[in-house]
Write a protein that binds this DNA or RNA. Sequence first.
DNA 1: ATAATTGCAAAGTCTTTGCAGTTTG
DNA 2: CAAACTGCAAAGACTTTGCAATTAT
Lengths: 156, 156
Amino acid sequence: MPGAHHRDAHLHSDTSERIEAILDLLRSEGGRVTIGRRAIVTALLTANDHHLTAEDIAKIVQDQHPDVHVSTIYRTLETLERLRVIDRVSLGSGGAVYHPTDHTHHHLICDACGAVIELGHEALAPLKADLEDRHGFTLSSQPISLNGRCRECAAS
Amino acid sequence: MPGAHHRDAHLHSDTSERIEAILDLLRSEGGRVTIGRRAIVTALLTANDHHLTAEDIAKIVQDQHPDVHVSTIYRTLETLERLRVIDRVSLGSGGAVYHPTDHTHHHLICDACGAVIELGHEALAPLKADLEDRHGFTLSSQPISLNGRCRECAAS
DNA sequence: ATAATTGCAAAGTCTTTGCAGTTTG
DNA sequence: CAAACTGCAAAGACTTTGCAATTAT
């Protein structure tokens, strides 16, 4: 394997940095960085399609590292999800899709008490994907506010 | 609790009517109404919990009709989904949940050309279920408008 | 009558897990 | 070196399907 430390020349340095940051996070948790894990993280951060199934990831990774087993993909995805590096979104049917977490926030607003619940971007990701698939409609990336009732107010 | 042992006696006439309407719809499509199907539809419309898994439904149905096989549950759910009587929502992990469709409409608004796309309630059903599960937040049943770009404007 | 539906069992997807060997830090 | 990770194969959860028998209209 060619110099594992040098950053791949074709990646934007921003992306390379994100990848390295994730791998460092992994190490800081007592984890190890293997060829497979590096390839999986790279696949997640460099794919143009931002909703990859485990199988998609396996194909990308195995293209260069045929030995990486699908069980390793699942185990690594599980770890990355626990570290909040990626989100797992289970679509209607077939397998779940995975994508890097981003930090856009939306809000849930209680009509009764005015409480505001912060919502990560990933909460709307399935909706966004669905609207694109079904209507060719691209949801604005601006924060969205949704009204309704919080747990307490819904109960009363 | 007014006290008969007969389930049907407890149903509000409104619910009974909805059940019969669904069964009629089934018949009008050339379908047959069997004991199992009636029990499944009844379970879906009378459960207090509004997100039942196939297994939940099986338990309820089999309580009174032990012969109804789980494959029948799945096949009937598939049929009801096709008839847009119920929505299937696949949650993060574990099995999907099913619940009756309602007919609220939402809108997608193009920020560029002002086009309005009508959206059935079911488009937001997975989001709604997700918000309830994760945040105990009940989305208002009022129409929701979401902004973004339509297919044509997104392209340019 | 006859086409739809069912129960059953077997197969199909997608994902998880036990284990012995390998690799990372 | 010790702990973490891996490939493999087998198991698990959930869902679908082929088929002969049954049932609704």
